[in-house]
């Protein structure tokens, strides 16, 4: 049954570099607030009753015929089931091509000195374990508030965010969901304005 009440069921701050696993019931609305601006929030979505029915970044891009996510974007699974819809967005656009940082990809991109820096995929594994989400269940995520321009010549860059303090994005769950969040700790590129900061999660259901 779809829940339509607007009770605040969740109001929490996720510190810079930390994560969260949130269960959002069908019809529930989850707002992610970029408290200090320019903070990438790496996010994965799973059908809470079937982990294999999980978010698919590139099926989502194809189905909407556009690279960036914003209000109206339907987040679909590898089965093309609608998992959630972005129902509000004061930032304007979000990335789902750039994936999550990992210790291993940091080494490739920035060098050996980053080998033991904290990274989003560490957070995904740590918080996902409670729901049975392991390495094999990890997939390509949404990067809320992250600016990854893709150009007509086939180029891709990471640039300073479009976001600002207080900007938010809200998703409405189309079925019962696990939402796995890593508040990105990356300090080697501008995706967090070189300074990771806390975010707020507000759930209404």
């Amino acid at each position: 049954m779809t829940i339509t009440s607007t009770t605040v069921a969740l109001d929490t701050v996720v510190e810079a570099g930390d994560g969260a696993l949130v269960t959002v019931p069908s019809g529930g609305r989850l707002r992610i607030v970029d408290l200090h601006g320019n903070q990438a929030v790496d996010t994965l979505f799973y059908d809470a009753h079937d982990l294999e029915n999980r978010y698919s970044a590139f099926d989502t891009i194809r189905e909407q015929r556009a690279v960036f996510l914003t209000t109206g974007s339907r987040l679909v699974s590898t089965r093309l089931d609608e998992l959630a819809v972005i129902t509000d967005d004061t930032c304007g656009r979000h990335d789902t091509v750039g994936g999550a940082c990992s210790q291993e990809s940091n080494v490739i991109r920035y060098g050996e000195f980053t080998r033991h820096q904290h990274a989003c995929r560490q957070t995904f594994l740590r918080y996902g374990a409670k729901a049975g989400i392991g390495q094999r269940q990890l997939t390509h995520n949404v990067n809320f508030f992250m600016n990854v321009p893709v150009t007509s010549t086939g180029g891709l860059t990471f640039e300073d965010g479009l976001s600002a303090p207080g900007k938010y994005v809200e998703i409405t769950a189309s079925r019962d969901l696990f939402v796995l969040i890593s508040n990105c700790p990356q300090v080697n590129n501008p995706c967090n304005g070189w300074d990771p900061t806390p975010i707020q999660l507000l759930g209404r259901w």
Binding site: G99, A100, I108, Q135, L138, G155, L156, F158
Partner: peptide
């Protein structure tokens, strides 16, 4: 891992002279 492959080589397409990278770098 397509996202890691693309962001490591600053490309949104696959072309000659690119290494296809794995989840584990």
């Amino acid at each position: 891992n397509i996202p890691d492959t693309l962001k490591s080589q600053m490309s949104a397409r696959i072309k000659p002279g690119m290494v296809l990278m794995s989840d584990r770098g």
